[in-house]
Simulated scan of single mutants.
Amino acid sequence: MAPDRLLRYLQIKVHHLIQDHDWDSIHVVGGYDREAVISAHEKTGKLFNFERPTADVQGRDLIVKAFPGADYVHHYALIIATYLSMTGKPADTVTYELPDPTLSRDAVGKLDLELDGDLVIVGWGLAHLVPPDGVWNHGHGYAWQHTEIHGRRVVYLGFLHSIWGDVAGRVVTRLAELGAREVVYVGKVGALNPDIEPNTRLATGNTSLVGGGFVTWPDFFSDFATAQAGVHTGVHVTSPSILLENRDWLTEHAEHAFVDPEIGPMGVAARDAGIEFGYLHVISNNLARHYPADLSNERHSDVVRRRTVLIRQIQDIIANRLAAQPI
């Protein structure tokens, strides 16, 4: 991403107290605390994934509280340090502390749904996927509703906060504990193939490079999604932060297809839990070639329009997959 676009991406994410004030230290920790100072840069007009890390002022020091996932705490600390460096401020004021796994597990454990072999669709774009007359039921940091598609009970699940990286894997584990039989993740993914223009195609697959090794999971879509027009498939790469995806990283992973933080951990969790998992994502940006659309201008009207068309295609593919699947 070009420097000006990277800075714009960071400005959208960084807490206003960091952009507006100087601090002796900034310490990022795991903690879901909506009683702390909420960022003025949280997105408005969204049902899900609008909450950003909050902050506690302690004199000249700032404690930043991110939802307790190891990948998210690390990623947000990188966001802050990179922003400070790009704006001429000392980045060495930033430190972070990875949350204890028990804290992460307990935070995700607040998810509580009554499931009985259901398909759970989780992620982004849910407002376009649910029935027009559907009603959202709210829990602790999440909301859900259910419907029937071709005789199958389907639960739509969205989170107000980010389920970045390992947190997404914990969500799949929790859903399996609650009785889900299949989980589909709808989201956005970066392309590593320079020929794919953002917001024109969908991505799917059943293999991810996670921690240096390949992981394959039982795929909800099987070969069904890849047979559809405009759906690209290939090996996915799990990366905890876009700020680690530099030129050397790209050279190392150029033969693979996609990158994002969640798909790998979710696939691992589904495999370990003995349930099916599938992803069907909008290809939202391209790491290998510059295109007008990237992660810094996602709110542009043309980007929104193109993605709406792709979400409708996702809706159709899921429905047709369920129609072809024995009950």
Score class of each variant (00 low, 15 high):
7 L>H: 00
6 L>I: 10
263 I>N: 08
3 P>D: 14
20 D>M: 09
139 G>L: 03
316 D>I: 09
108 V>I: 14
216 T>Y: 02
136 W>F: 01
13 K>A: 15
149 I>N: 04
170 R>Y: 10
42 E>S: 04
230 G>Q: 08
91 A>C: 05
169 G>Y: 00
183 V>K: 08
230 G>E: 09
305 R>D: 03
47 L>Y: 08
187 G>V: 07
195 D>R: 11
205 G>R: 07
178 L>G: 07
2 A>S: 14
150 H>W: 10
198 P>R: 01
38 I>E: 04
133 D>H: 13
194 P>S: 02
9 Y>F: 14
150 H>S: 12
169 G>A: 05
278 G>N: 02
263 I>M: 11
35 E>S: 15
69 G>V: 13
206 N>K: 04
305 R>P: 02
136 W>P: 01
23 W>E: 03
177 E>V: 09
175 L>Y: 01
53 P>R: 01
39 S>K: 02
252 E>L: 10
313 Q>E: 11
120 V>Y: 08
250 L>I: 14
303 V>C: 06
254 A>C: 10
34 R>M: 06
193 N>C: 09
6 L>S: 05
25 S>N: 06
78 L>H: 13
280 L>Y: 03
26 I>T: 00
73 V>C: 05
97 E>G: 01
143 A>T: 07
261 P>Y: 05
20 D>S: 12
28 V>D: 00
181 R>M: 02
19 Q>W: 03
44 T>A: 09
62 L>R: 05
185 Y>Q: 11
7 L>V: 01
121 I>C: 10
133 D>F: 08
286 N>C: 13
201 R>G: 06
187 G>C: 09
223 D>V: 11
323 A>N: 14
309 V>D: 14
194 P>W: 06
178 L>W: 06
134 G>A: 15
2 A>D: 07
186 V>P: 07
80 I>C: 15
38 I>R: 13
145 Q>T: 15
112 D>R: 12
164 W>Q: 03
55 A>D: 04
300 H>A: 15
88 G>W: 06
222 S>F: 12
291 Y>H: 13
96 Y>W: 06
165 G>E: 00
39 S>P: 03
152 R>M: 07
175 L>M: 00
